[in-house]
Nucleic acid binder design. Structure first.
Lengths: 153, 153
DNA sequence: CGCCATCACGCACAGTTCGTGCATGCTTGA
DNA sequence: TCAAGCATGCACGAACTGTGCGTGATGGCG
């Protein structure tokens, strides 16, 4: 069971994934050695999936991001697995979630430009035998973007 | 201009935001001191927006995530700014993007359960004077989820 | 009520990492 | 051909990290 210190560590780690036990200790008023133990335990318990650098898209040549809503031809587990494998092999697809409602899946994709977005959509996504329809929306502006889950501490 | 070493660092940092110069040097075949310099330079240049721990939602009491598509009553900059401020103050809203197409905005939200999702939707989002309509889809399954942008190295 | 066991804590310390000064080699331009 | 600039690795000092150990608090049991 996570106590108040654990939640504080996790909350701060979501914002600052790069701090170590010394700085964490200063922030939550615990010694560095105790923070080191708790941080290791939280990792070991699987409460942290991973630590990631979040980049400026422009820096790595990403000029367009979009959402793509898909409906699928079949809802069989085999078709789902086949599509999942396909998606896992496409670096341009950052996220893929199965949804309730009209669309079956929602993808979040990142490409260099409209040309490569069109190529991804036409030759990889719509070309997949599992896909019935695709409806895409280009991201015009990022109002908010965080990986931080709400934590009550 | 980013060279091959820089791109390798960024690519690995997206996967492993927690490694230091020693480990990075082993991975990309450069000395730890040179990696330290390059990593610091990449941060200073703003190519890295931040480092974040990505948590297991269950660990912090998040049991439901959903997308919410919004249409807005007005498209004035004032209304946009007002809504942006509102969204910034809601920890449950992880992402908010302005889109082309039928919907004006797409939100990605995280809540404890359906009850608190309903409360967020009814009392915070739909209650905002800027919002015309909202259409939500619960996430049933996460097929893929990464913050890593595609990088050609 | 007292005792014992367990757990969380901070201190001390050894090992490792990190960041920087310096020397060297390579490349480019004049 | 020479000089300047840049990238590199080595050496080293400072800081960090992780672990052993002792201590105190808490809870349960007799």
């Amino acid at each position: 069971m996570l106590d108040a210190y654990d939640l504080k560590i996790l909350a701060l780690w979501q914002q600052r994934g790069d701090i170590g036990p010394v700085e964490m200790g200063e922030a939550i008023h615990l010694s560095a050695s105790q923070c080191s133990r708790r941080m290791a335990a939280l990792k070991k318990a699987g409460h942290v999936r991973g630590f990631h650098a979040v980049l400026d898209p422009v820096a790595v040549g990403v000029g367009l991001m979009a959402y793509v809503l898909l409906t699928m031809k079949s809802h069989s587990p085999e078709a789902a697995d086949a599509f999942r494998m396909r998606i896992m092999g496409l670096d341009e697809v950052m996220e893929c979630h199965k949804l309730t409602g009209e669309a079956d899946l929602i993808l979040k994709v990142a490409t260099r430009d409209l040309t490569s977005f069109n190529q991804l959509l036409s030759h990889r996504i719509l070309a997949a035998p599992e896909v019935a329809t695709a409806r895409s929306s280009i991201i015009l502006d990022e109002v908010k973007s965080t990986t931080a889950l709400p934590i009550r501490v």
